[in-house]
């Protein structure tokens, strides 16, 4: 079970969280102006990298807040977490 550092509560076990998939997928400002293909991409297409993955988590059974995390999908190591809107930190080398 992962140990996830919630930016608001500190490290907590994974069962307190829910993963919200890839981060930084911005909802289009004016969806009506987006064509079908681009809207389909927004809805369904996600990257599936081997390595560092920027993803969203929510501390469902804690502070109930959403935040972003950088996780290495190979080692499951969580490299950084940060609040929504904060600049994404560079992954440590």
């Amino acid at each position: 079970m992962l140990l996830i550092p919630c930016p608001y509560c500190g490290p907590r076990p994974e069962i307190e969280f829910r993963c919200g998939g890839e981060a930084h997928i911005a909802r289009p400002q004016d969806p009506a102006k987006v064509d079908d293909a681009a809207w389909g991409d927004y809805l369904f297409l996600r990257t599936n990298p081997k390595g560092v993955h920027a993803e969203r988590w929510v501390h469902t059974h804690g502070c109930r807040r959403w935040f972003n995390a950088l996780r290495d999908t190979l080692s499951d190591r969580i490299l950084a977490t940060h609040a929504v809107g904060e600049r994404r930190p560079d992954p440590p080398r």
């Binding site: 829910r18 919200g20 969203r56 929510v58 469902t60 109930r64 807040r65 959403w66 929504v84 809107g85």
Partner: peptide, 13 residues
Amino acid sequence: LQHMEEYLQTEWP
């Protein structure tokens, strides 16, 4: 509630 929170916090904070 989770669905609403998600949009409120991540799309329209």
